[in-house]
Design a protein around this nucleic acid. Structure first.
Lengths: 239, 239
DNA sequence: GCCGATTTGTCCGTATGTATC
DNA sequence: CGATACATACGGACAAATCGG
């Protein structure tokens, strides 16, 4: 795989983040960039399209490609894109620990099939974990994995990073993730495990995740302490 | 503009939503689709790329393009993508009303410049509105508009749909929107205007919106009643 | 208001690489 | 190994918006 477009994307992105092309300035024209990167028009446009999709730039017909990126003060803990808890914590230079509360096998019944999207009758692995950030409990993770897809997973591994195991050891490529964010009332478990007293609502991220073969192998509910939840998103309107 | 790719995108998308290509089945191969639509390889791939980006399909190298879409029971009120309150309500066949609480001019000071991203000293229009769904107050909208970009806006228009006015009458094309979702404690205004008693947290969507010329013309904070908030998102991991 | 230069936007045909079966 | 299917890249052509003279 050559992935020239990806190199160009990363190069321009870093240049923008470094401040080479400030907010509200224009990138060099496509013609110039094509010469600089010695690539085709299409390849360059693919890289620009990715940057536009993520809100770094906005191409304006007949004028140029405008930079919309501005550095900003970041929240303590942010999600957006597919990033695991461990990765996010590392990026924010925070120390994390994970406590496995439950680790058990079960079979998907009719009701849970409707909720989760797993087929009825399949074997599942249920893992319930509390995630700590610098000693504070911030997320209650309720993972349901397709047992056949996570063979070899142990309670020990779950206490570190399940995704690292899946990607590195099982060579599973995590591809598509569908997420829904809601705000729900805290229940007794939440209050006990997340150590909250004066808080009665949580941010809840419910997600279905598909691997490289297109099988949905995970259904997870992450219940976030409201003070440590921040989700970022950029959207483009097509006309 | 020919926009063949968009036609193909919509056609395949509707076919999927209609059930022609069920969950976990493969689309016809690219070669077949190229013949069917009488278009080039590139154009077809662009359409497929859009479908993949939005989680409808997942292309699998060497095998085919797998359908990941499943119809699902939808929440009462969902957001995701760029959709206005009015559009979302219409899609969900709900009756909406809007009450304008405040409508005033102001100048961006240093502090608000840092928070919003507007330049210090520019003239702004502040509009505070409560949005009702079938009579229930569900969102408290605090819009800040760049005064120079929304000339002709009146309190009367604000009580219906500001975006409709901007797009149809001012011919403004709303392009990029950067959003952050957090969960915040309800203040006295929230409690009074959203008619909440036993609820003390809200879903807060803070957004910066850019028009077709690349100028940020809006900074808005939408404070959602937690029971009527549902945000959808699909993400892909690049390897 | 028109024209031409510049710049982005769309599409095509072709070639080649790589994973799956 | 060959056939099939997706993945990347190139070069060329033309359309459409913008801007200055």
């Amino acid at each position: 795989m050559r992935a020239i477009f990806n190199q160009i994307y990363k190069d321009i992105r870093h240049a923008i983040e470094r401040g080479d092309y400030p907010y509200q300035s224009f990138l060099p024209s496509e013609a110039i960039l094509v010469k600089r990167y010695e690539c085709s028009h299409n390849t360059l446009r693919r890289a620009l399209g990715m940057l536009a999709e993520e809100g770094f730039v906005q191409p304006i017909h007949g004028k140029g490609v405008l930079v919309l990126y501005r550095p900003r003060k970041r929240a303590l803990f942010e999600i957006g894109g597919i990033e695991t808890f461990t990765e996010t914590a590392r990026r924010n230079r925070l120390h994390t620990t994970t406590k496995v509360m439950r680790y058990e096998s079960l079979v998907c019944d009719a009701e849970f099939s409707l909720e989760s999207g797993f087929a009825e009758g399949v074997d599942l692995l249920y893992v319930e974990r509390v995630r700590f950030l610098d000693g504070k409990p911030v997320i209650l993770d309720k993972n349901h994995f397709l047992a056949s897809a996570v063979s070899g997973l142990t309670r020990e591994i779950a206490s570190h990073s399940i995704y690292e195991y899946l990607e590195r050891d099982l060579c599973m490529s995590i591809i598509t993730s569908k997420r829904t964010i809601t705000v729900e009332r805290a229940d007794a478990d939440d209050e006990r495990l997340l150590d909250i007293a004066d808080v009665d609502y949580l941010a809840v991220v419910t997600s279905q995740t598909f691997n490289g073969e297109g099988t949905m192998f995970e259904y997870t509910q992450s219940r976030h302490h409201p003070d440590y939840f921040c989700f970022n998103d950029t959207a483009m309107r097509r006309r």
